[in-house]
Design a protein around this nucleic acid. Sequence first.
DNA 1: GATGAATGAGAATTCATTCAT
DNA 2: TATGAATGAATTCTCATTCAT
Lengths: 208, 208, 208, 208
Amino acid sequence: MQTSQSPRSLKEKQRQERETLILQVAEEVFLERGYHETSMDEIASRVGIAKGTVYLHFPGKDDLIVAIFARDMQEILRHLDASLDAQSSPQAKLEALLYFMYAGLFHKRTQLLSTIYHSVDMRRLFAEKGNCIKSLWESVVERVSLLLEEGKARGEFDATLPTSVMTSIFLSLLSPKSYERLISEDKLSPEDIVIHVGKIFFRGIAAQ
Amino acid sequence: MQTSQSPRSLKEKQRQERETLILQVAEEVFLERGYHETSMDEIASRVGIAKGTVYLHFPGKDDLIVAIFARDMQEILRHLDASLDAQSSPQAKLEALLYFMYAGLFHKRTQLLSTIYHSVDMRRLFAEKGNCIKSLWESVVERVSLLLEEGKARGEFDATLPTSVMTSIFLSLLSPKSYERLISEDKLSPEDIVIHVGKIFFRGIAAQ
Amino acid sequence: MQTSQSPRSLKEKQRQERETLILQVAEEVFLERGYHETSMDEIASRVGIAKGTVYLHFPGKDDLIVAIFARDMQEILRHLDASLDAQSSPQAKLEALLYFMYAGLFHKRTQLLSTIYHSVDMRRLFAEKGNCIKSLWESVVERVSLLLEEGKARGEFDATLPTSVMTSIFLSLLSPKSYERLISEDKLSPEDIVIHVGKIFFRGIAAQ
Amino acid sequence: MQTSQSPRSLKEKQRQERETLILQVAEEVFLERGYHETSMDEIASRVGIAKGTVYLHFPGKDDLIVAIFARDMQEILRHLDASLDAQSSPQAKLEALLYFMYAGLFHKRTQLLSTIYHSVDMRRLFAEKGNCIKSLWESVVERVSLLLEEGKARGEFDATLPTSVMTSIFLSLLSPKSYERLISEDKLSPEDIVIHVGKIFFRGIAAQ
DNA sequence: GATGAATGAGAATTCATTCAT
DNA sequence: TATGAATGAATTCTCATTCAT
C-alpha cells in the first residue's frame, strides 16, 4: 500500500517543487521584462526545462501569471493573518504590512504586483481568468479596511474620513516603483522610507 | 500674398488637426486595451483612416505613444506653470495640481500616464526613445519638490521629513486607478476624493 | 497659328526635358541602390518633383526602367551605326564598341544594363512589358553578329567557331562589374583594361 | 549506449536533411523568381512546411540567401581542390572548372550565383552580412589566379598579360545567362559551348 | 512525463499607385 | 498640370500553443 502511494506522493511532491520553481522564475522574468516582452521560451529555458513542460503545469501564459498573482496574494494574506493574531494596535499591524510589502523579502514581488495591477491589459485578463485573484484581493482590501475601522473605533484614526478613501491611499502607498528614485538617488534605505511613509500616512489619518 | 501662404498654412492646419485626432484616439485605445493589445490597425480604423496614414504622422508605434506622453506632460507643465503664477500658498498649488490630474478633464489622461508609468516595458521604451519625456517628467518632479520646499520654508510643512519622500508620496497619490472603486462602489465624486486625499496628505506633512 | 503652336511645342519641349531628367536621375538611383531598393519617392525627390509627377510621365515603376533601357539601347545602336559608317575593319568596329561600352561616358550605364540584364526578375519584366527592349537588343546582337561574320568572311576571324558563341562571349565581356576590382585593387585604367580584354578576345577568335 | 546517442544524432540528421531541403527549394525559387520577388511564404509552402519553420533554421531571409551562397561556394571550392589534386596542366584544371560550373550539375546554381553576383543590392547585402561569402569567393579567385600564374610560369600562357585581367575574363565567362540563347536558339549543347568558350579563352591568353 | 520541432494567426511596417485639390 | 496625402495589399518576422516521439 505504501509502495503504491509513496511513489505517487513522491511524484506529486516533485511536481509541486517544479511548479513552484516555474512560478519563481516566471515572476522574476516578468518583473525584469514585463509580461508581453517575456516569451514562454525564455521562462522555460531559465528554469532549465522545455517549453512544453511549462504547459504541463499551466495551461497558458495567462494562467501562469494568474497563478503567480494568486500565490503572492495568498502569501500576503498569510502574513496579514499572522500579524492580526499578534496582539497589537491596528496601526502597528498596518505598519507591519507596509514593511512586509515594501522593505522585507516581499519587496520584489510587490513591485510585480503593483506593476501589473496598474496595467489595463492585466486587469482585463484578471477580470476574465482570475476570479480567484479578485476575491483574494478583496480579502486583502477587506482586512485593511477592518483594521482602519478598528482604529477609528479605538479613537486612534480620524472617524470623519471615509474608510474607503483611507484604504485606497494606504494601498497606493504600496507601489515601490515610486520609491525607486529615493533609493537610487537619495540613498535612503527601504527601512527609512517605510518609516517616513508610515509617519505621513498615520499622521494624515490620525484623530484630531 | 495670402493666396501663396494660405494653402500652405491650410494644409499645415489640416495636418495638425489630423495628428491631434490620431493622438486623441490612440490615447483612448491605449487606455482601453493597453499598449501591447492595441494594433496600429485598430487605431487607424477607429480614427477612420488607413493604417498607412498613421505612419505618415508617426514613424512607428513607439513614437506614437511617446508623442502622447510628451503632449500630456507638456499640458501638465503648462497647467503647473499657470497655477504657480496665481498667487497662493504652496499647498493651494499642490491641491490645484491634484485636482487637475485627477478630478478635472485630465482624469483619463492621468490614468494612461500612471498605467504606463508603472509598466516595465514602457519604462524601458522611454529610456530608449523618450529622452524628451524623461526631462519633461523631471520638470514636473522638480516643480513639486520646490513647492514642498517652499512650504517647509514657510513653516507650513514638516521640515524634518525628507522632501524627496514627500514628493514621491504626492506623486503616487496621482494614480486614479486606485480610486476607481471609490467612484464605482462607494459612490464618491472625484471632487470628494480629491478633498479627502488632499486632507490626509497635507495633514500628514503638516508642521507639528 | 504660330502662337497656338509655339506654346504647344514649348510645353512639349519642357515635357521632354523633364522626362529626360527623370530618366537620368532614375538611372543613377537604380544603379546605386538597385531596382527593388529604390522607391519612387526617392527618384522624385532627387529630381526635385513630386511623386505624382513621375506618374504623369511614366505609368509605373516598371515602365520607368523599361524606358531607361530603351533609351540606353537606342544610344548604343546609334553609336554602333555611327561606327559602322566609319570605314574600318570589323575588329576596329567591335573594339570601338567595347571602348564605348566600357571606358567611355557610357561606362555607368553599361553597369546598369549588365546589372539588370543578369537579374531574373528584370528579365521577366522585360518579357512582359518590354517588347521594344527585346527587339532593340536583338538589333545590337545582330549587328555584332554581322560584324563577326564579316570578319570571318575577310579571313580575319576563325571561321570554324560558331558566330553565336563568339557573339555571346563578346557580349559577356561587356559587364563592367567584373572589372571593378581591376580598377580599385590593381590600379588599372579602364583604357588599359579594354585593351587587354580586346587583345585576349581577338586573339582568341583570330583565324589561325 | 547506442540508444542514448541514436536519438540525438537521428534528430540532428533529420534537422540537417530539412535544412538542406529548404536550401534546395529556396535556391530554386530564388532562381525562378529572383530574391525580391520571392516571399518566405512561397519558399515555405513549396517545401511543404509552415513559414515559421523556415525561421527555425534561418534567422531571416538574408541569412537564407547567404547560406545558399556559402554552400555553393564551398562546393565550388571542394571541386576546385579536387581538380587541383588531379595531376594535369593548369589549362586542364581551368577547363574542368569551366565545365563544372557551366555544363555539369552545377549549371543551375551557377546561374543563381552569377545572377546575384551582378545585382547591386545583393552585393550590399553580402558586404554587410556575408563576411564568409566574401572570403570564400576570394579563395576561388585566388585559386584561379594561381593557376593562371602557374600557366605563365610554364610558358603556356602569355606572361605579358596581367593575371588579374585574365582572371576577371575567365570569371566573367562563367555566367551561363549569356549562353542561354545558344542552347535555346542555336541548339548547341552545353558541352559544345564549353569547348568553344574554352578554346577562345585559352587561345586568347596563349603564349605567342 | 518530458521534449522541442512545427504551426499559423497576428502584428508592424513599407511603398507603388491613385486622386482630390 | 503638379502635388503629396491617403490607401491597402503584401511582406517579414514573432511566439503562444500543440503534439508526435
